[in-house]
Amino acid sequence: MPKESLNSAEVRDMMLAVADKIIEAEPILSEADRQLGDGDHGIGMERGMNAVKEKLTSEEPDDIGKVFMNTGMAMMSSMGGASGAIFGTVFRAGGKAIKGCEAFTAAEAATFFQAACEGVKERGGAKPGDKTMVDSLQPAAEKAAEVTDQPLPAAMAAIADAAEAGKEASKDMIATMGRAKTLGEKSVGKADAGACSVAIIVATMRDFVA
């Protein structure tokens, strides 16, 4: 049954689904990172998402923004590393921007993704084209801003397509940030592990509302 809007309990259930999906994808994410970095991205994300599940099931989801912020805080404090700071910032900054909202619709999704993307760029200094997770998150945020008048399932489908296309486009980019930058042109042909995580997160959100 497609969902036109989500309440706080449904947002929590969506994030629990995201957590399960990321945990399941650990070997894929670790392998992606092993091609370009040190190969621990999947492990870190798995640890973060286990902490998210513990946090989100331990308290009543009274506010949609807070569900996302709790997700971010749980990731940040359990993961460490660049991934912890970056993915923690995605949900903390995104959640903060929609704190107090009554329902999660395409409009809130747009606000969420834009704030998340700005927060990440400010914290990590990455620009589009640097072959980082921003290359998946930024197209998702831009698409989200274009589809605010659509029903949530259609909007999330468009946002997920943009995130996936962004991840694919990162394959052709040369890494200039993080541990992959020493690879230079050797980094071409492989997708950034963080961009893979973003694509999985957004696709799971799409599947949840579909």
Binding site: D38, D40, M76, M79, G81, A82, S83, G84
Partner: peptide, 11 residues
């Protein structure tokens, strides 16, 4: 931090 990962801000 954890293995090969920076310590999180709370630490």
């Amino acid at each position: 931090g954890d293995i090969f990962a920076a310590p999180p801000p709370n630490i």
